[in-house]
């Protein structure tokens, strides 16, 4: 009964795939920007409207580009880690859909891990980066190419396994 066993085989494949599916988060969206240079954008700095934040300047060293906001509660979960990382890595921020006052105040209260933050009041920069869920963190190599994107709060494990591993690999 070839037809019968064929049905059994197809079904077994289906079950295997569904089992794999159980280990994945279906709402996570992979980014098409990985492996490409960080999109060119210019924005005001959070610190001052007169100064500009230029994404093309993010080269020469490994850096992290972190999308954050004062209204974002998940951002607090990763904040401590970011503060620590700011000692070792170039860390830049994109303040997403926020107001200047609240964002600055937030940095004052919790500490500012960023060398500089772009002020993305209307989410325009967010669209350029394909941001859909704050916080998001991008890893840029010394050539300004996006190597990895983390969605949600960054934790020690993700930092070690995804970010640090890539930096070590990338170094000659």
């Amino acid at each position: 009964m070839i037809r019968g066993w064929l049905a059994v085989a197809v079904f077994a494949g289906l079950v295997a795939m569904l089992a794999f599916g159980l280990t994945r988060d279906p709402s996570r969206v992979s980014s098409p920007l990985i492996g490409l240079p960080v999109p060119a954008f210019q924005a005001e700095r959070l610190a001052s409207a007169d100064e500009h934040f230029d994404s093309t300047a993010l080269r020469g060293e490994w850096s992290l580009l972190n999308v954050w906001a004062s209204w974002c509660t998940t951002c607090l979960e990763e904040h401590e880690l970011l503060m620590r990382l700011s000692q070792q890595l170039a860390l830049y921020g994109i303040n997403h859909r926020d107001t200047r006052d609240e964002a600055r105040n937030w940095l004052q209260v919790y500490g500012n891990p960023y060398r500089a933050s772009a002020f993305d009041e209307h989410g325009e920069v967010g669209i350029e980066l394909g941001v859909y869920k704050v916080p998001e963190t991008f890893l840029l190599d010394p050539d300004g190419v996006i190597r990895y994107k983390h969605v949600g709060a960054l934790d020690e494990e993700a930092y070690q396994e995804q970010i640090l591993a890539r930096i070590r690999e990338g170094r000659p």
């Binding site: 009964m1 049905a7 079904f11 159980l22």
Partner: peptide, 26 residues
């Protein structure tokens, strides 16, 4: 996730069993 694992196991048992029986007996 525990629920998913359980239902999938049960699904495999019931449907897989049914299909194997079909393959043997049809």
């Amino acid at each position: 996730p525990a629920r998913g694992v359980y239902i999938l196991g049960f699904l495999a048992l019931v449907v897989g069993g049914g299909l194997i029986l079909y393959a043997i007996r049809a």
